[in-house]
C-alpha cells in the first residue's frame, strides 16, 4: 500500500476481476481499432495503432497479468494512458471492459492480496471495495516501465 492519494479512478474488468488506474492519466478510451503487429516483440505487445496521426503502442493488460483468455469481444476496449507529460509516453492498454469512474475520496484503501505468479505487475497501490467488487489499483509507472521492450 502506498501513500499516494487518488481522487478519481477509472475501473475496468480483466477476466473476472476489477482493476483501476488514475483517471487523470487517461487520455482516451477507444474501441479496438486495427492493430498493426510489430514483429519481434513479446506477445503482450499487441502492436501499434494510429491515433489521430500518432503511432501508439498497445499492450494487452490481460496477457501482462497472466490471464489466458485474450480474445477480443464487443466490450473490449483500449484505454490510452499517458503516464507522464511527454508525448512519447502514450500507451494503449487492452482491457476486457471499461466499467466506471470511481470517486475514491474518503474510501478506505486496503493492501492488495492479489499475488499472481505470472503477472508482470506486482506492485499495486491497494484495493478498494466498491459495492460487491474488489477493485485493485494499478501502479501506472510500473505498468509503463514493464511495457518497455
Amino acid at each position: 500500500m502506498s501513500e499516494q492519494h487518488y481522487n478519481t479512478l477509472l475501473s475496468f474488468r480483466l477476466n473476472d476481476e476489477f482493476f483501476a488506474i488514475d483517471a487523470m492519466k487517461v487520455n482516451h478510451i477507444l474501441e479496438v481499432p486495427d492493430i498493426t503487429h510489430v514483429p519481434n516483440t513479446p506477445e503482450f505487445l499487441r502492436g501499434v495503432i494510429n491515433l489521430h496521426g500518432n503511432v501508439i503502442p498497445v499492450v494487452d493488460l490481460r496477457l501482462m497479468m497472466g490471464f489466458d483468455n485474450a480474445d477480443f469481444s464487443n466490450d473490449t476496449a483500449i484505454v490510452v494512458i499517458a503516464p507522464d507529460e511527454q508525448q512519447d509516453s502514450s500507451l494503449g492498454v487492452v482491457v476486457d471492459m471499461v466499467k466506471e469512474v470511481i470517486e475514491a475520496d474518503g474510501m478506505e484503501m486496503k493492501a492488495t492480496v492479489v499475488d499472481k505468479e505470472e503477472s508482470m505487475l506486482k506492485n499495486f497501490h491497494g484495493t478498494l471495495s466498491v459495492g460487491d467488487d474488489f477493485v485493485h489499483v494499478i501502479d501506472i509507472d510500473e505498468l509503463a516501465s514493464e511495457s518497455e521492450v
Binding site: 516483440t41 503511432v55 518497455e148
Partner: peptide, 19 residues
Amino acid sequence: VKPLGRYLKSHEVVSGASI
C-alpha cells in the same frame, strides 16, 4: 517517419513507423 515512442525505442529492426 513517426517515432515509435519510448516503449519500442530499443527495437532491433524497426526504427519508426509511417501512416
